[in-house]
C-alpha cells in the first residue's frame, strides 16, 4: 500500500492541480482569475509530463562519463523535458494573448468582473 502511494502520489497531486485550474477557469467570475486558473491547469499538465520522465536512480540527461549512456536506465528520459520546454513557451504565448484580450475588454467596458461586464454589454 505504501509502495503504491509512493508510486502514484505525484500523479494525484497533479490531478488536484488540474482540478483546481479547471475550477478556476470555469467557475470564477473575475476574468483575471480565469487566466490564473488557466496557468495552473497548463502547468499541471507540464508537471505530469515531467513526472512521466522520471526514473529512480537516474541522473539528468546530460552526458556524464560516470554513467554509461548505453543503458537508458542511467538517465532521465530527455524527451518529455524537451517537449515541455516547447509547451511552456506555448503556454506563455497564450497567456500573453489572454492579457492582450483583457486589456481590450477593459478598454471597452472598464471592468473585468463577468457579471458586471455582461450587464454593460446587455445595456448597450
Amino acid at each position: 500500500m505504501i509502495e503504491f502511494l509512493h508510486s502514484y502520489y505525484a500523479y494525484w497531486a497533479i490531478i488536484l492541480l488540474l482540478v483546481i485550474g479547471l475550477y478556476g477557469m470555469l467557475v470564477k467570475t473575475n476574468l483575471m482569475k480565469k487566466v490564473i486558473g488557466m496557468i495552473i491547469f497548463q502547468n499541471a499538465i507540464i508537471l505530469l509530463f515531467v513526472a512521466a520522465a522520471f526514473k529512480w536512480d537516474a541522473t539528468v540527461p546530460v552526458l556524464d562519463p560516470a554513467y554509461p549512456s548505453e543503458d537508458p536506465v542511467n538517465y532521465l528520459n530527455p524527451l518529455p523535458h524537451t517537449l515541455m520546454l516547447t509547451a511552456i513557451v506555448v503556454g506563455v504565448a497564450i497567456v500573453g494573448v489572454a492579457f492582450a484580450l483583457l486589456i481590450a475588454i477593459y478598454r471597452n467596458y472598464g471592468t473585468l468582473e463577468e457579471p458586471v461586464l455582461m450587464e454593460r454589454m446587455r445595456s448597450e
Binding site: P61, S69, N74, P78
Partner: peptide
C-alpha cells in the same frame, strides 16, 4: 525514442546535453 536519444544523442550531434 527516449532510450534512443540517451544512447545516441552524443554520437549523432556531438553535444552532451541530450535535451
Amino acid at each position: 525514442a527516449g532510450a534512443y536519444f540517451i544512447g545516441n544523442a552524443y554520437r549523432d550531434a556531438a553535444t552532451p546535453n541530450m535535451v
